[in-house]
């Protein structure tokens, strides 16, 4: 399990990186490498040139302000997980990152790399969609900003064009009075989710006032649960769980089968996670 031969460069600026990316047929960006390198070890990915962006000045930054958190392309998941300021503005970051891999993976893996990799069972793409994150991209034709909702096209497939590079992602601050819950069913600690949910829930007076619900591990891309978002409005613990669960089932009809779970299981699980998230948010509100 050794990678096939490739060339390597380590640019010091984004411009240099873009030039390098355009210079070869199968060039790839190396940030954390925690998904790319295993794929290369399995010889599943054809790479002729690896462009290592880890020494580009300023790319490993995590900046936060009251309006949101900006994470640079080379910033590791551990950096963000340990960042108290980021957690206070976008609580979903810490909630999501707790489920990502293990310490050793998070120490190298990057937030932007996880978005670019677009694993359908990953937490961070779902968080990006749930929180209306904006992904900043540089390419041969200049810079552009892509809404997370438009960024994920399919499993391991994004709106990034050849020669483009994510430079940073901006997670807007959560709406006041809301909390983000990231919950999932995974077979083992640290595994990708069999099915998962990012729920940003606004609760007040013992009822859910509104929520953004995004499922993952269901299809090729994070799945916005729109019927459930409607059904959860004004939901309270004494309401029947069935209607909420049925709405989730309607939202997730396309969930896929694989060796870890069936489609119906994934749908049921996300329905259960949705009810659980609503209850948890209401309990938190009551406690606060």
């Amino acid at each position: 399990m050794k990678p096939a031969p490739f060339d390597y460069c380590r640019p010091s600026t984004v411009t240099e990186a873009l030039e390098a990316l355009s210079s070869a047929e199968s060039s790839r960006v190396l940030a954390g490498g925690q998904s790319l390198v295993p794929a290369m070890n399995f010889r599943l990915t054809d790479v002729s040139l690896l462009v290592d962006i880890n020494r580009i000045e300023g790319l490993a930054s995590v900046d936060c302000d009251p309006g949101g958190v900006t994470v640079g392309a080379a910033a590791t998941q551990t950096q963000v997980l340990d960042h108290d300021g980021a957690a206070s503005v976008v609580s979903g970051l810490r909630a999501a990152l707790r489920h990502v891999g293990h310490l050793q993976i998070r120490n190298r893996g990057t937030v932007c790399g996880s978005l670019a990799h677009a694993d359908p069972a990953a937490e961070l793409p779902a968080l990006a969609v749930a929180s209306d994150a904006v992904i900043a991209v540089s390419g041969p034709d200049g810079e552009r900003r892509i809404d997370a909702a438009d960024f994920f096209i399919g499993a391991f497939w994004t709106a990034l064009d050849d020669g483009e590079l994510i430079t940073e992602v901006r997670f807007p601050a959560e709406p006041p009075g809301s909390m983000t819950i990231v919950d999932e069913i995974s077979r083992r600690a640290g595994d990708f989710a069999v099915a998962g949910l990012v729920a940003t829930v606004e609760a007040e007076g013992g009822a859910v006032r509104g929520a953004r619900l995004v499922g993952f591990g269901l299809g090729g891309v994070p799945t916005r649960l729109e019927a459930a978002e409607a059904a959860i409005r004004d939901w309270a613990p004494d309401h029947p769980a069935d209607t909420l669960a049925e709405a989730v089932m309607a939202d997730t009809a396309d969930a896929f089968d694989d060796i870890h779970a069936t489609s119906w299981y994934r749908r049921e699980a996300v329905a259960a996670l949705t009810v659980r998230a609503a209850r948890r948010a209401l309990a938190a509100e009551e406690a606060a």
Binding site: F42, A189, D191, I259
Partner: peptide
């Protein structure tokens, strides 16, 4: 085989 790695063959960790 529908397995190729430790992502598919689930050896328990300390947490399991």
């Amino acid at each position: 085989p529908r397995f190729a790695s430790f992502m598919d063959y689930l050896v328990p960790t300390c947490a399991e």
